[in-house]
Amino acid sequence: MNEILQVKNLKKYFNVSGGTLHAVDDVSFTMKYGETLGIVGESGCGKSTLGKAILRLVQPTSGEVIFEGRDITRIGNKELTALRPKMQMIFQDPMSSLNPRMSVSQQIAEPLMIYNVYRNKADMDKRVLELMDTVGLARRYVDTYPHELDGGRRQRIGVARALALNPKLIVCDEPVSALDVLIQAQILNLLQDLQKEHGLAYMFITHNLSVVKHISNDICVMYLGQVIEQCNTKELFRNTLHPYTKALLSAIPVPSLNKTRERIILKGELASPIDPKDACRFAPRCIYAKEKCHNCAPELVDVGGNHKTACHYVKEINGL
């Protein structure tokens, strides 16, 4: 068994006043042990909801999440509690995900206490210090509170807490977006080191394509709740197929003066995810859109080499 996680046709709909909001619409993918899957997309495309649905922090509407060979979407609370230590999450903003009234050691010890891992406090304190060493947090901070620390150190607490119960899968929801570049580089290096050491699988949710390229083995690009392109990282950047991914790549400001890239500026903004009609959701902003795109939703199909994309005219656009 090579796969740690298989997601099949996962859907999460929310009932809102205007109708049904399709936050995650029919998403499928697999993740292997010790590898990183990047989920990229703009705000509102459903990437965070996807992460939470997989951990069952929100209950999926339909579909399967098969974690280590077992569908977890329908299991009861008791079984779920038993599974939680294996799947953890790191949140975007460490300030709002940490309890401001708990010291660093209490924050890190909390999961250990909930799961009664240690009989006595001395063992637990030892483990907390070990975890602090693992994430590179100096031991002198053990009794400090989150407000006394900077963003990078706070995020290290978040990482230590996620690691406390020796998980196999960590969903990282924009873990470096709130950090400065130098700190961002430190945290990314830390996550990579931990992955090598503990064989962790990461689901890495971000809007930053250069970060996701750096850290991921595979990438899913999401647009309005759907995966529109999915393949190996190298393949995605070498051979971008979907017009949205192309526009996304060309929109990133590159810190270099020698680049004369063709800029595709997308018109308009994300359409509403409430009761979308049967059409390509990107069509209103797409420069290649034809009549078919507005009347029929494209399926995610493999165009060769395990490179999947959802576009009616992918062959014509890319001259395949």
Binding site: V181, L182, I183, Q184, A185, Q186, L188, N189, Q192, L209, S210, V211, K213, H214, I215, F237, L249, I252, V254, P255
Partner: peptide, 16 residues
């Protein structure tokens, strides 16, 4: 410290 879109780097250079 910036991850690059053009080059492949295994590890980012950061200062402590």
């Amino acid at each position: 410290a910036l991850p690059s879109l053009d080059k492949d780097v295994d590890r980012l250079k950061s200062i402590s």
